[in-house]
Deep mutational scan, measured.
Amino acid sequence: RLTVMSLQESGLKVNQPASFAIRLNGAKGKIDAKVHSPSGAVEECHVSELEPDKYAVRFIPHENGVHTIDVKFNGSHVVGSPFKVRVGEP
């Protein structure tokens, strides 16, 4: 089962990169992540390998409000996905 680490749920800033990590815990497959902005825009997140069992997911929010992040592994949502994060002040 995958572990999502260091996902900041609030206090993110517009046009500043945000990232979190995913540990695969021995699982093999493909991570896919997309961020949905409050206006409905959908953007791919950048996924990069940090070490053999750990990946970083990076995105840049372009507007204030609550964004939804879909994180999928081999086509299925990971536990807790979709995640909600707040950009800007509430």
Rank of each mutant, 00 (worst) to 15 (best):
E43W: 02
E89G: 06
P52C: 07
E9Q: 02
E44C: 07
G26T: 03
L24K: 04
H62T: 10
E51Q: 13
F73Q: 03
K72T: 08
I69P: 00
D53F: 07
I69C: 05
Q16L: 04
K72R: 08
A33Y: 03
I31F: 01
Q8D: 14
C45Y: 06
E89I: 11
F73H: 12
N15C: 04
D53I: 07
N64S: 10
V42G: 10
I69K: 00
G80V: 02
K34C: 05
D53E: 06
S10K: 15
V79I: 07
N15G: 13
S48V: 14
L24A: 05
G75L: 10
S19V: 05
V42R: 12
A41V: 14
T68D: 09
N25S: 15
V14T: 05
I22C: 13
V71T: 12
G88F: 14
V87I: 07
G88E: 08
G88M: 04
E44R: 08
V79M: 13
G26A: 05
F20W: 08
K72Y: 06
F83L: 15
N25T: 12
I60S: 11
A33T: 15
G11A: 10
F20C: 08
F83Y: 09
V66H: 15
H36I: 14
A27D: 15
V87M: 01
I69D: 00
V71E: 00
Y55W: 11
P52E: 08
I69T: 04
D32C: 14
M5E: 07
R23N: 09
G80C: 05
M5P: 12
A56Y: 13
N64R: 08
K72P: 00
L7Y: 03
S37T: 05
T3Q: 11
G80Q: 10
S37L: 06
C45E: 03
E63A: 10
M5N: 12
L50Y: 04
G65M: 01
K72W: 07
G29K: 02
K13N: 03
G65R: 01
F83I: 15
A33Q: 01
L2E: 01
V35R: 10
E51I: 13
R1S: 03
P82E: 02
L2C: 02
A18P: 00
L12H: 02
P17S: 11
P52V: 10
V66P: 10
V71C: 11
L50W: 06
P61L: 01
E9M: 03
G65H: 03
I31A: 03
D70P: 09
F73V: 05
G40M: 06
G29L: 03
E89C: 09
S37A: 09
R58N: 15
C45G: 12
G11S: 12
Q8N: 08
S39H: 08
K54V: 06
F73Y: 05
F59A: 02
R1M: 15
S37G: 06
S6G: 15
G88K: 05
F59I: 10
S19W: 07
V85D: 00
V66A: 09
G29S: 04
V78P: 08
L7T: 09
F20K: 00
P90K: 08
S19A: 04
A27T: 03
E49Y: 06
K72D: 12
H62P: 14
E51V: 11
S81Q: 03
Q16P: 00
H62M: 11
A18K: 03
D70K: 08
P90T: 13
P90E: 03
A21H: 15
H62Y: 09
G80D: 12
L12R: 01
D70H: 10
I31P: 06
K72I: 11
V42P: 05
R23T: 07
N15Q: 03
M5D: 12
K34R: 09
S19P: 01
S76D: 15
E44S: 06
V87E: 01
N74M: 10
A33C: 15
A27E: 14
